[in-house]
Design a protein around this nucleic acid. Structure first.
Lengths: 133, 133
DNA sequence: TTATACAGTGGAGCATGGTCCACTGTCAAG
DNA sequence: CTTGACAGTGGACCATGCTCCACTGTATAA
């Protein structure tokens, strides 16, 4: 199928698909061209793009996605390997969540300190939200 | 003081300080040069950098930090304004946290589905972690 | 015939926040 | 007098993931 079809069926834009192609996440066989030089994408590319979509939706970067696809390529993407990668990602996500929660508390405390020590129209340089006390 | 001192006392590297200078977050008066052309940073710059540090630590981007500093500049950084910005940031952070929590659940479910339906050495294309079922 | 929508390529640009580099000048110690 | 640490400038480069652009070729319908 042509790239437009592929775009429609994967939800990726043509530009994105071409971007992935440039970066080696997908590839068209050199001979898969129509007479007019249009690329004829085989169905496996559609499958692969849907796979990329799935993996990306799980929070993996394009590089990580690439690695995973490489493992699939050489048939080394075992359940244990993939579960391990996914679990590592869970840990990373939990770290990020913890960081954000801490940040949120910092902000909340700053707001509290500000609203309890100064009037709304007062200059915020006095309440610790802008300047260190 | 010279940039080295400033770096030491703020924890920013010289490069970062110069980067901030290039981007207008700080500025040295055009005349604040020693005879040897070294910049003589007034104490206000030190204060300003520490302020930047504080604001950044609250999760604001450099652009947002810039905006806040601009408000301070024209004395419009009231407690209400600042508390409002901080609260908006809290909301944004909570959105991010919610996204990450959902992502974590997606991953956990994927792992669970994988580990319950296939043996560790099995090919992960069969368990939904790589390919849509 | 011409407008349009599609296809191809290569490369620039965006946001974010620095980091590093080359090349030059200055100053103090040994 | 040389060495080293510091200062200055301008600009390139990094990761991330696209997005857009120019320029060209092809297919189709009015």
């Amino acid at each position: 199928m042509l790239i437009g079809q592929l775009a429609q069926r994967t939800g990726f834009t043509r530009d994105t698909i071409r971007f992935y192609e440039k970066h080696g996440l997908i590839a068209v066989p050199r001979k898969a061209r129509r007479l007019n030089n249009y690329k004829e994408y085989p169905d496996e590319v559609l499958e692969r793009l849907l796979t990329i979509k799935r993996i990306k939706a799980m929070g993996f970067t394009l590089n990580e996605t690439q690695e995973i696809l490489d493992l699939v390529e050489v048939d080394q993407a075992t359940c244990a390997t993939m579960a391990g990668k996914a679990n590592a990602k869970v840990v990373a996500i939990e770290q990020k969540i913890a960081d954000l929660v801490r940040l949120r508390e910092t902000l909340r405390n700053a707001v509290k300190g500000c609203t309890t020590t100064c009037a709304p129209e007062a200059n915020a340089t006095r309440c610790g939200l802008v300047v260190h006390r």
